[in-house]
Simulated assay, not measured.
Amino acid sequence: MKSSAPYRTGQRLPLEGGAQLRLSVNPRARRISIRIDARAGEAVAVAPSERRLSDAVTFARSKADWIAERLSARPSGTALVPGAVIPFRGGTAVLEATGGAGSARLVVGADGFRIVSGGEGEAFARRVVNLLKRLARETLTERTQVHLTTLGQAPVTLGINDPTSRWGSCSPMSRSIRYSWRVVMAPPAVLDYLAAHEVAHLVHADHSPAYWSVVHRLVGDHRPFRAWLRQHSGDLHAVGR
């Protein structure tokens, strides 16, 4: 039987002012909310069920001016080219070309971080991203294991990808955790919080007070870390665009 709901998850609608709205259902959501997907250049209306998507659309339309303002203020893309400066570990890293076809590598000096790489054009950018992914995997593997040990949890399967809307996800049934490689550009404490956030879902799959008490046990007050990700999400997603 087809759903009688007028809207469906994944549907896109135009808003007044030219903005685009994508509809999304998250059964774990407690209320209707609107977020800005800086990578896709659109707003996302989140509802706890498909039946509530009509309310989400109404709410989004009432916020059309705010959505347009947020989208217009999102950072422009940062190309991965020699001379570019990108966020890295809470600071910045300068990209440098070395000539030849060597892989990208991280150089730590008195003047900060540098990422030096061979290749030209897309090949240069690809080598830089591959390095960032490798560094993300190394660091997130380490911090995930620390939190698993603290909670007495068995090992998990860890993956690194580039999602558009989540920094991480956890599947307790399959004991797998996936992270966005872009979090390696955030301060180490924020990356550590993300690892704790996902590991805590092995204990509680929801975002109940019991769940947040587990997160607090691992990293203390989580609110500054969540606020940092909200504030700088656009900057991290702009890298390489």
Rank of each mutant, 00 (worst) to 15 (best):
S3F: 00
S4I: 12
A5F: 02
Y7T: 00
R8G: 00
G10D: 01
L13P: 09
P14S: 10
E16Q: 14
A19L: 05
A19K: 03
A19S: 13
S24G: 09
V25F: 01
P27T: 04
R28A: 11
R30W: 04
R31K: 11
I36L: 12
A43P: 11
V44P: 06
V44I: 15
S49T: 03
L53C: 05
V57R: 10
F59L: 15
D65L: 13
I67H: 02
I67D: 11
A73H: 07
P75W: 06
A84H: 03
I86F: 00
V107S: 12
G109M: 03
F113M: 03
R114I: 03
R114E: 13
L132T: 00
R134W: 02
E138R: 04
T141F: 14
T150P: 00
Q153E: 14
P155G: 12
I160M: 12
D162N: 14
W167E: 11
S174Q: 13
S180R: 04
S180H: 02
W181V: 09
V190D: 06
A195Y: 03
L202K: 04
D206G: 14
H207T: 13
Y211H: 14
Y211A: 05
W212K: 08
V215H: 04
H216N: 03
R217E: 02
D221R: 06
P224Y: 04
R226M: 15
W228N: 06
W228R: 13
L229K: 11
R230W: 10
Q231V: 02
S233K: 03
D235A: 12
A238V: 00
